[in-house]
Design a protein around this nucleic acid. Structure first.
Ligand SMILES: [Mn+2]
Ligand SMILES: [Mn+2]
Ligand SMILES: [Zn+2]
Ligand SMILES: [Zn+2]
Lengths: 133, 133
DNA sequence: CTGATTTTGCAATCTGGTTGCATTAAATTT
DNA sequence: AAATTTAATGCAACCAGATTGCAAAATCAG
């Protein structure tokens, strides 16, 4: 249940937060702040913004920079700690502009030039998604 | 010589363009519009913007979305056609905020879920760069 | 209940990016 | 070379997404 999911992450379950969580839960794809704002009538951008920040801070969701200009958010798996083991590939459809978590594909470890130490990475594939092809 | 490099890409070598090209050429790291604007006294943001767009369109430079919020630009190698074979990994230093082209490391080809067709990708590693470590 | 803390809503601000438009510069034609 | 056409520049305005200040409302703890 959503309320529980919030509590587990130490987020007080207010009405707005439950709605946002539900919305993200029911979405097949990652959502941006403004998409949420549109979808949720009589919602306030600043509140949504702070809701998402809180969710992200408490590792209930993760943010995705898909290069579209607006940051997308998607639910983390249960038990996610948002460290490198939880990082995965994302896919951005250039037709419908949807962004998908490809949770079962991790980011490949590459050997960087000497002296460059990486602790995280962002890998986004762009193209045409399943529903658009 | 810079003038020639512009001509080869079908870009008319104006004074401003030569300056911008020189600046990018001499920079170890990728530069953003506003970094250029700061560096080049009495330069205009809109002109720089259009200069970069033109350079990018004509494949003299490529743009890099390193997740920092501002797009960075770096010179392409000679003969670059900015297609998938020319795409490479980038590195963003979280300390000095510099972004480097790792031109000798390509983007790994991964098998995406059925129905997802990718034609480009963005892979940025984040961490500490050589000069900051 | 009561005072302290947190969340919310609204307006304002910031930043990077982008565009309209008149001016200037460069290339082409006569 | 002068006239004509085309491209580049500079300035101001605009835009979208992100972020903040602040007072009101909701929630919590004693
Ligand atoms: Mn994801
Ligand atoms: Mn590069
Ligand atoms: Zn699609
Ligand atoms: Zn560095």
């Amino acid at each position: 249940m959503f309320e529980n999911r919030l509590k587990k992450r130490n987020i007080r379950p207010t009405a707005m937060r439950l709605i946002v969580l539900k919305e993200l839960y029911e979405s097949e794809v990652a959502m941006s702040l403004s998409e949420l704002e549109l979808k949720l009538e009589n919602s306030d951008k600043a509140t949504l913004y702070r809701t998402l920040k809180k969710f992200e801070e408490n590792q209930l969701i993760h943010s995705i920079d898909d290069g579209s200009g607006s940051i997308k958010y998607a639910l983390c798996d249960e038990g996610c700690t948002c460290d490198s083991k939880d990082q995965h590939v994302h896919f951005h459809c250039e037709k419908c502009l949807s962004t998908y978590c490809i949770t079962n594909i991790g980011i490949p470890q590459l050997t960087l030039p000497k002296g460059f130490i990486s602790n995280s990475a962002n890998l986004v594939f762009k193209g045409i998604c399943l529903s658009c092809s």
